[in-house]
């Protein structure tokens, strides 16, 4: 199940500090959207508002609306815990639970909130999730071994398997390849292409070639200076952003003149 995301006039604050200002963006279902921009421009912060993970930091709050197929994630009575089961996330550094086996890592999210799952269902889900993350063939003989024994790229795919095991509508990726070697990066990029068939994928990346390779649409974020809020500068089809950007700052950034 894939859902679209519509963001209206979103401001993100940390305490009194306005971190991201006035974001309007419409992300289609079953698409890959890349967020690019220099460090500190608020793209990761904005990404985290899409599953309310920014609330982990005390004092973080937002103004505006984030609609997931029309349902406001910040509406009254919305539980952030429930939001995160619909909008999954993959982090910058692979973070499988070190004390859990590969199997338990995949099932970690499924067993939450007191849910029970039969043994055969669990086996099926582990296999389908690991296949979905292109990891099954590499780990099928050692599902009981710790997830931390895998290589970095395998760990990151394990995290993706863990995220898709809970059957989210959207998968957010916060620089998922920045800690990986080129071969592992390629494996993840291929996987993103496949995930598009079933999920809405939003990826933050510092690597512009990566954005160009994997995404359908690209959003460029920028910041006027330190202490100023980050803003969405331009959002268009990826080919448009890289070949024919409308805004000067976008052109400077994608052509490597700064950033």
């Amino acid at each position: 199940m894939s859902k679209r995301i519509d963001v209206k006039d979103l401001n993100v604050y940390y305490g009194n500090f306005l971190a991201v200002e006035g974001v309007n963006i419409n992300i289609a279902a079953r698409s890959v959207t890349a967020f690019i921009g220099p460090s500190g421009c608020g793209k990761s912060t904005f990404l985290r508002t899409l599953n309310r993970m920014h609330e982990v930091l005390p004092g973080a709050r937002v103004e505006g609306e984030v609609l997931l197929d029309g349902d406001d994630l910040y509406g009254s009575g919305v539980d952030p815990v429930a939001v995160r089961t619909h909008v999954g996330m993959v982090f910058q550094r692979p973070n499988p639970f070190p004390t859990m086996s590969i199997r338990d890592n995949v099932l970690a999210g499924v067993k939450l909130n007191g849910k029970r799952i039969s043994k055969s269902d669990a086996e099926g889900l582990v296999e389908s999730s690991l296949r979905g993350a292109n990891l099954w063939n590499e780990v099928k003989d050692r599902l009981d071994k710790p997830g931390s024994g895998l290589s970095g790229g395998q760990q990151q795919r394990l995290c993706i398997a863990r995220a898709i095991a809970v059957k989210p509508d959207v998968i957010l990726m916060d620089e998922p390849c920045s800690a990986l070697d080129p071969i592992s990066t390629l494996a993840i990029e291929d996987l993103i292409e496949e995930l598009k068939a079933n999920y809405t994928v939003v990826i933050v990346t510092h690597n512009m070639q990566q954005a160009a390779r994997v995404s359908d649409k690209t959003a460029f974020f920028n910041i006027a200076g330190t202490g100023k809020p980050g803003k969405l500068i331009e959002y268009a089809a990826t080919t448009e952003i890289f070949n024919n950007p409308k805004v000067k700052a976008t052109e400077d950034y994608v052509s490597g003149r700064f950033g």
Partner: peptide, 21 residues
């Protein structure tokens, strides 16, 4: 590690589940 706490929260864990996980 913050990394592991966030991993649990991002899967939809409550605070207590995050602690257990």
């Amino acid at each position: 590690p913050k990394l592991h706490e966030e991993a649990a929260l991002a899967l939809g864990a409550t605070r207590w589940e995050m602690v257990k996980m």
